[in-house]
Design a protein around this nucleic acid. Sequence first.
DNA 1: CATTTCCTTACGGGATTCCGTAAAAGCATA
DNA 2: TATGCTTTTACGGAATCCCGTAAGGAAATG
Lengths: 222, 222
Amino acid sequence: MFKKVLVAEDLDSISLAVIQVLEELNVSTIHHVKYCDDGLIKIKKALHENEPYDLLISDLSFKSDHRKTTLSSGEELIEAVNGVQNNLKKIVFSIEDKNFRIKSLFNDFGINAYVSKGRNSITELRNAIEAVYRNEERILSSDLSFNFNDKTLIEIESYDISILKLLSRGYILESISKEFKELSITPNGTSSIEKRINKLKIYFKANNNVHLIAIAKDFGLV
Amino acid sequence: MFKKVLVAEDLDSISLAVIQVLEELNVSTIHHVKYCDDGLIKIKKALHENEPYDLLISDLSFKSDHRKTTLSSGEELIEAVNGVQNNLKKIVFSIEDKNFRIKSLFNDFGINAYVSKGRNSITELRNAIEAVYRNEERILSSDLSFNFNDKTLIEIESYDISILKLLSRGYILESISKEFKELSITPNGTSSIEKRINKLKIYFKANNNVHLIAIAKDFGLV
DNA sequence: CATTTCCTTACGGGATTCCGTAAAAGCATA
DNA sequence: TATGCTTTTACGGAATCCCGTAAGGAAATG
């Protein structure tokens, strides 16, 4: 079994359970951080001292409070970690259940398992840890199990997200066009952006922009 | 201390911690349900058998899964419970941190304490339970502590929420007007609704309807 | 009962979205 | 360079939103 594991989870009520699982699995060194920044520091330090972690179990969303942070989400933490310790195994343990985001975690962030917090997540988490230890890939807790080849949501790219983001901040077409020109994002004609929004509306079956943003918010795209 | 407590919480990783707190406080009978419906049944049954619960600790949001449910949120559970056992003490333990919703829990649902899930929530929860037992009122975990007299968000009433809900579902002004007429919600002229939306836009500093809905989503109003 | 005030509804013009068509530009191929 | 294909941009009319003004109606006041 893993020897040294780091848990990144802000809610104390949850980290308690995670640590308990790790103890039951006889992990000898279990560390826990409540902020992403602390997680990165610990990983760097361990690496520097030649006692690197075997596994990272991280949440995705972290509450913001008085403390100023550089890394504010699990994604950011994982991205940073990938830059310093490539071989570290990664399990994400989160409430998120949107295919789009989960797929991106496997494809873009190279995580090894995703466990969704739910009614039986403690067992699911234990299973996932054991499976990752056996070097299995792309482990998904059983309440999710979607098809990785399904292209439905994967097609939405960062360009679309940028549009949705600006829309949700009250920009009108012309302002979006202007902003895109400044950021050298193409295409940036109002007409092209309009067409793209139209595609999104068809895709998400939205009646109008207001509806579209409401849906995008529900999907966690913005 | 309380003798008989019911915990309504779907995430097993969290209920574990809650139950642990209750055990430490020497609560002799601790029951736990993962669905709101089960919670109501248990409370009714206990009442019927003349062994009612002293305290309910409930989450607000419950994941939906294969199982069909009548009550789908903590609010609905509490509302139902208020109808059958008025003297039951109620603590809400949730991640929610929007003043609007929390105030409504105290004012409209008569809860005794609100503890927000966070980095020190286990201690907060323990304190809240003890305070409720001492008959203290309106207990709030320390990371929130807002002013109850602050009228900023309390002014937004169900009429506004109805408008925002329909907007977020893609309705245009005219459709909202028609819908309101059918439901006998007044005022229902397109012009009045328009004016109300305008007020909301000023209030939330929104540039347009799209922006407004994005903000409303962020605030958890819809 | 007349007057005032507030709330609701109606109307209108400009801005923006919505949606289709067409021109212009970029790109590959021969 | 010429040709065809695709992507991007431009344009225009209808629908809807946006925002101010005003008319109509109900409740409050004297």
